[in-house]
Amino acid sequence: MRALFAGLVVAASLAFADIAPPEKAPPEPAPAPAVVEPAPAPAPAPQHPMGIEKAVGSGVIQGGWEYVYACYALAVIGVLGYGASLFVRRPKEQAS
């Protein structure tokens, strides 16, 4: 009985065991050379209506007109706003 059992175990292990030498995997095909797509052209900096951007070289800050506009607006608001506040606070003799 023991011999039969042992024989079954050996037969089963022979049947399920992967005793064959591993087959050499076929060499993977060389990857196809990637198609180099041209880099998208950089978005053009916002152009000033008067074309001043043409004078701006590379390696310097591009654009930034919104900051310039904000500062100039602040310059006007500063003087006009304070002028208005002085008018509102003017002495009564001048107001009448």
């Binding site: 000033h48 001043i52 701006v56 310097v60 800050i61 654009g63 930034g64």
Partner: peptide
């Protein structure tokens, strides 16, 4: 904003 030239490094800013 229009007459003066852009600054060498900061450009229009």
């Amino acid at each position: 904003m229009f007459y003066a030239p852009p600054e060498a490094f900061m450009s229009n800013v």
